[in-house]
Design a protein around this nucleic acid. Structure first.
Length: 711
DNA sequence: TCATTTAACGTTTTT
DNA sequence: CGTTAAATGA
């Protein structure tokens, strides 16, 4: 037990020894955040202050939870596979699933609910938009989804949302929102946001249920608290009400998910929120050299909205941070290749020591090409997840439908796959008949023989499909998960369906085989457990650093990781910071935090690259070097570089004054002689992208176009 | 009903 | 430029 405390620095130790009451740990990058949290749990358990099962530790990824579990097991000398002796460690969503499976029925949530992912949600929204006859280009399903998701993150109900929907898109979203919820509940489905929202609802309205969970989780810890959104914040409040044994750990400087509803002010307000909270700052950094820390510090200090911290380190000083200018995006790749080749050849480094970080996934392509050309092994984190591949999603949809035959989204996905001759026409006839008779989807399907409005062929096909599902349901009851999937694949002749002779089809077949072997591993979870795992797992969860390959990923994905050498590419205005953030103070500050996160991933060497030109969207762009570079090095201003500071300066109204052009800014309302009124969506020099209320989106040259600002 | 062509679009995406 | 979703034709 003594060891648990001994290895800690004074701040970490204080955090660990503060066991009761609210505790805020403001933990800078690389300050041993996870270590502190794990040791705190170990301390609670080893001192007999809490039984493991009375501790709840919430992380943001399954991977983080897994790491914590492993570390805790090693401190306590236990087997990490033995989950029974472990505190509950998982994500917010994982905890909520557990609570809802048990107590959801009180709210009318079927305990066999399925979880809708983004593509299910989009499909649902598309369907509703079609029903509503919305053709407006403004109302893209993605935009609607973001609005609905935003509302759910704020725990705003459809009725309330409708009241303050003001823009045209919001109006559409307010029409979609209630219908969307109805569709989900018909399908016995919850989306990611519902998992949190329904749990909040449950704990708010059912005192006996919340009492039960509160006494279950007598000690609660939340990691990455800066990334909690409003719904999650409410959930935490409900879980710790009365005992207030809550420890939160986070760093507002690393808050990079505000676009998902996260609000780092929650962490800054913690001590107001929970009176008598103890606040501990962890400022000693164990990761990076002083040079890297200093550079990162210079960048982040330009943010106005932030807490005050000063990171320091004992690590001996190293190389200065390098800022490199290259010709174009290809040049970035070539610089990286030569750096890696040199260091690896000299025996100084191995491939796994390097990470290449970028702002957008699209940037990975040209880097990959260059790495392939020079034979540098690499792996990419992110992009298309295993479970997002079509062939896998299709099979998962089958499994889901077997599990929950009211899930219309899965039904639509698989009913004609492989082709059974059930097309749009037959389906809409079927649905009409279903609605007319007030049958649920699964009832209707079983009674489909009675449906007169279908052709004989369609009727037989649908009935065949129903029989197939029925027999697989029986199989699911009595057999192992992997046997079920194998049987499914057989019954569908799935390999034949996938094998179209193309090169990719071999990959697809491989993927399906991979799924079967994954299913073997999860066999003891059963079908429901497996489906849960699949919908709550992320690409990052499978990521392991290996010595044999360079890692490529987005800055977002890099959070929480560290590498001896970090190379950040695309340090240019409108790449990092991203063009969409140039005109908004708060978004700019988030870009800066993103830059900060990237920089603080580096242990020994940090190289920041920018290109004079780059190919983007099929055209060549000339971007100024990122403002973040000049924040690191004031002297880092050359030739054309003096101008951007003026052009992008934040004026009183974030106005962009470009000489000789009308004064316009993103989000300004404008009027056009022909197209009528609209809002500026984006500005790129003289080219403005304007969303007109009636005429839709247009790209206009504001130097010539008859547009003027209104309002 | 499916395969091919055309048009639109373009940030990040822990769950 | 490359991808993906809608639209069209066989």
């Amino acid at each position: 037990m003594q060891q648990i405390i001994e290895e800690l620095n004074p701040g970490q130790r204080e955090a660990v020894e503060t066991t009761d009451g609210p505790l805020l740990v403001l933990a800078g990058a690389g300050s041993g955040k996870t270590k502190t949290l794990t040791h705190r749990i170990a301390y609670l358990v080893a001192n007999g202050l809490a039984a493991p099962e009375n501790i709840l530790a919430v992380t943001f990824t399954n991977k983080a939870a897994g790491e914590m579990r492993a570390r805790l097991a090693s401190i306590l000398g236990m087997d990490s596979a033995h989950r029974g002796f472990m505190p509950y460690m998982g994500t917010f969503h994982g905890v909520c699933v557990r609570i809802l499976r048990q107590d959801g029925p009180a709210l009318g949530v079927d305990s066999n609910f399925v979880i809708f992912d983004d593509s299910d949600r989009l499909a649902t929204i598309r369907q509703i938009l079609k029903q509503l006859g919305v053709v407006d280009k403004q109302a893209s399903p993605r935009a609607i989804l973001n609005l609905i998701s935003g509302a759910k993150n704020e725990l705003i109900e459809p009725q309330t949302y409708a009241q303050f929907a003001s823009t045209p898109v919001q109006k559409v979203a307010s029409q979609v929102y209630p219908k969307y919820n109805r569709q989900l509940s018909q399908a016995q489905a919850l989306d990611f946001d519902d998992l949190i929202g329904k749990t909040v609802e449950l704990l708010t309205n059912y005192p006996e249920v919340s009492k039960k969970w509160r006494s279950q989780f007598g000690y609660v810890m939340i990691d990455e608290y800066q990334d909690t959104n409003n719904a999650q914040y409410r959930l935490v409040k409900l879980l710790v009400d009365k005992h207030n044994n809550l420890a939160v750990v986070g760093d507002d400087w690393q808050s990079i998910y505000s676009w998902r509803g996260a609000d780092f002010k929650t962490i800054l307000n913690f001590d107001n929120d929970y009176p008598n909270a103890k606040v501990v700052k962890l400022e000693q950094n164990y990761r990076s050299t002083q040079e890297i820390l200093d550079a990162a510090d210079k960048v982040i200090k330009n943010n106005k909205n932030r807490s005050d911290k000063k990171l320091w380190t004992d690590v001996k000083s190293g190389k200065p941070v390098a800022i490199e200018r290259v010709g174009d995006d290809r040049g970035e790749g070539e610089y990286i290749v030569s750096k890696i080749k040199t260091d690896v050849a000299s025996g100084k480094r191995e491939y796994g020591d390097f990470a290449v970080l970028y702002r957008t996934n699209a940037q990975s392509r040209s880097l990959e090409e260059t790495l392939v050309r020079y034979g540098i092994p690499y792996k990419i984190v992110g992009g298309v997840r295993f479970y997002d591949r079509k062939e896998i999603k299709d099979l998962i949809a089958y499994l889901r439908y077997i599990y929950q035959p009211e899930d219309q989204s899965s039904f639509l996905r698989v009913v004609n796959l492989p082709t059974r001759g059930i097309g749009q026409k037959s389906l809409s006839n079927f649905f009409e008949w279903q609605a007319a008779n007030n049958y649920s989807l699964w009832q209707a399907l079983q009674l489909v023989q009675q449906c007169k409005s279908l052709t004989t062929k369609a009727r037989t096909s649908l009935n065949g499909f129903a029989q197939l599902i029925k027999s697989l349901q029986a199989l699911a009851e009595e057999s192992k998960l992997d046997q079920l999937i194998e049987m499914l694949v057989n019954r569908l002749n799935y390999f034949d369906y996938l094998d179209d002779g193309s090169l990719q089809s071999a990959d697809r077949i491989e993927n399906v085989k991979e799924l079967v072997s994954v299913a073997k591993e999860y066999a003891e979870l059963g079908l429901p457990g497996f489906l849960e795992e699949v919908s709550l797992v992320s690409d990052l969860d499978g990521y392991e650093q290996s010595a044999q390959a360079v890692t490529l990923m987005t800055l977002h994905a890099a959070k929480g990781l560290e590498f001896p050498v970090v190379m950040m590419v695309g340090l240019e205005e409108s790449v990092l910071p991203h063009s969409r953030a140039l005109y908004e103070q708060s978004e700019m500050e988030e870009e800066r935090r993103l830059c900060y996160v990237g920089m603080t991933r580096a242990k020994e060497e940090l190289i920041m690259l920018h290109a004079e030109r780059r190919m983007l969207y099929g055209g060549v762009q000339h971007n100024q070097p990122s403002r973040f570079l000049s924040e690191i090095d004031e002297d880092y201003l050359d030739s054309a570089q003096t101008s951007y500071a003026q052009v992008f300066e934040f004026g009183p109204k974030d106005a962009v004054s470009t000489i000789g052009l009308p004064e316009l800014a993103v989000r300004d309302q404008v009027e056009h002689q022909v197209f009528g009124q609209g809002i500026i969506h984006a500005l790129d020099g003289e080219i403005a992208t304007i969303n007109f209320f009636k005429a839709g989106q247009k790209k206009l040259n504001i130097a010539f176009a008859p547009v003027k600002k209104i309002g």
